[in-house]
Design a protein around this nucleic acid. Sequence first.
DNA 1: CACCGTCACTTACACGTGTAAGTAAAGTGT
DNA 2: ACACTTTACTTACACGTGTAAGTGACGGTG
Lengths: 338, 338
Amino acid sequence: MHGKVTSHDVARAAGVSRATVSYVLNGRSGQSISETTRQRVLAAAAKLGYAPSTAARTLRRGQSDLVLMLLPPEPLGRALAMVLDAASDQVERYGLRLIAHRLPASGGAVDLVRSLAPAALILTTPLAAEELAALRSLEVPLASLQQEMDDPLGPDLGIGALQVGHLAAAGHTRLGVAVPDLPGYAWRVQVRLAAIEHACARLGLHPPAVERIRLEAGDAAAAVARWTQGPEPVTAACAFDDDYAFALLSGLASHGLSAPADLAVIGAEDLPLAGLAVPPLTTVSVHARMLGTLFAQLAIAPLLGADADSSTEHVRTPDAAPAAQPVPPVTLVQRASA
Amino acid sequence: MHGKVTSHDVARAAGVSRATVSYVLNGRSGQSISETTRQRVLAAAAKLGYAPSTAARTLRRGQSDLVLMLLPPEPLGRALAMVLDAASDQVERYGLRLIAHRLPASGGAVDLVRSLAPAALILTTPLAAEELAALRSLEVPLASLQQEMDDPLGPDLGIGALQVGHLAAAGHTRLGVAVPDLPGYAWRVQVRLAAIEHACARLGLHPPAVERIRLEAGDAAAAVARWTQGPEPVTAACAFDDDYAFALLSGLASHGLSAPADLAVIGAEDLPLAGLAVPPLTTVSVHARMLGTLFAQLAIAPLLGADADSSTEHVRTPDAAPAAQPVPPVTLVQRASA
DNA sequence: CACCGTCACTTACACGTGTAAGTAAAGTGT
DNA sequence: ACACTTTACTTACACGTGTAAGTGACGGTG
């Protein structure tokens, strides 16, 4: 009952051959097993606490039952944490398991995937083009924020467009943008800025005034000062994050100003804290759980399609219908700050 | 260069036997290999892009090079995300890999560990006693927040004691505590409350007045009202989290009160936002990165000790000295709110 | 009674790796 | 010149699993 329990042990305990055990536990269709021995095997397996070795099973099948989620090198934000959560739930409905690995900045994703042989891959962080190409050539089903999301909503999920749209509808024409200047966030910042600039151009607004700040009152205050002074002041600002929106509110307060009168502020992510700010923060809510479910679905879909093939029929169909909902993954949450 | 590259392919390309490539790549000490063939093998492996199959290697060794970190069912907070980050860094210095798996509420940790055969285990979430016992009997090196941290600092890392100590030093004798009422946080809440109650008793304060609230302005305002009204009002409050501290500040504001005059408020976690609150939040900083490093070290240590044994000598010694620092993992950050 | 199909299994092999044991040639000591 | 160590490999096996192919026994049909 302790150390290692193999199917051989189960077979001996049940008084049958090892193959029989395998047939019983995997419910192979082509084979017929009498009900009595089937029960005997099941009982023996349960009693011994048998858990098949993923290593051996993976070696045999050429593919494991793990879905690998690659995380960005920077620490996870709340949104990504919930994506992980939801994806994990979804993946388990198919009898698979989700594991996450933080990708070091040095790369090495390809080797990991080669050696782990996961059933599917979920990318939540951008990769070098050649690394991505190498991954694709590995024939592992792959869902990527970088790529798959390119078409439907743009790689920033439409956050930038929603922010700009709301501010423009309120009559603002000169916008500011506050983003982190940390290297780890470079790609996401670039994507967001592109989306915001595109939206401004489409709506006929002036090009946005970008400020790269640290998450400190001083930095935020300086940015606010640069925006609000001068002949043609910025009247509204998009924050990269609710965190940065908080920083802007704090910066305003340190000048004796406040939102939305002196500067409208809109955040992104809808943190639990957003409603507690003074004034309550208008923000863009990211339905992270839904995104996670969607990602998992995208990654697993090819495995289901190949159900007819002999290679990957170990993927269970789920109990309840999962059906990725067509709800937009981001929505505006209007409060008082913009 | 595409699909699967096995050591057999490398051997053929280098014109040697498969065993030779294994000896070369694993740098076995007992064997002697001529420098010329060694280079030939290395070149062939690099050219073909060979990555050894973890499955086969794990099967052979009986133990994989993965360190498994089990995450709680609830979404990760910032602190835990940074623990993951740091642990991942530390583990990779030893040539191992860290993967994280979100533990479903239903359990099933034992089966996962049995089948994955990880080199070590890091628990960041409590398990049922019997499940923990089963894990321990698996002989996998295990570092657990639940257990290992019991002695040095108590399972709440000393956060509660630090909070109470600071408030007591400022002359407060009647304290309130604000904690979440979400079921997912039940264990952590219980641990924190125990620590706070213990600290209050030790310092001769009155037993704390506990309020279980949701992260909403209304709930927080009600809690503040119950504390501040009455014949013997609470004058200071410990929040479970900086999030809950923000909620308390918001609750105070909605009554026209403010910290620390009407109610001193102390948080925990030192979010980036903490310094941006009005007033800036006094809080307990958790050195999450250091904790992560420490955990990883704790988990890996048994593998290093067994270096003399033949079982697990594939763990590399790190390039730089890692040396878990004896710095306390939590420190007080005094700002204005308490 | 011979024949055939179905049932309920068992035997045998492959997956890719690490490593103990074997082997042939070259070097070394007396 | 012969034994004996050292060098530089190769051959062979085991890890635990999934599954194709094989094997009796049994039941039914001609």
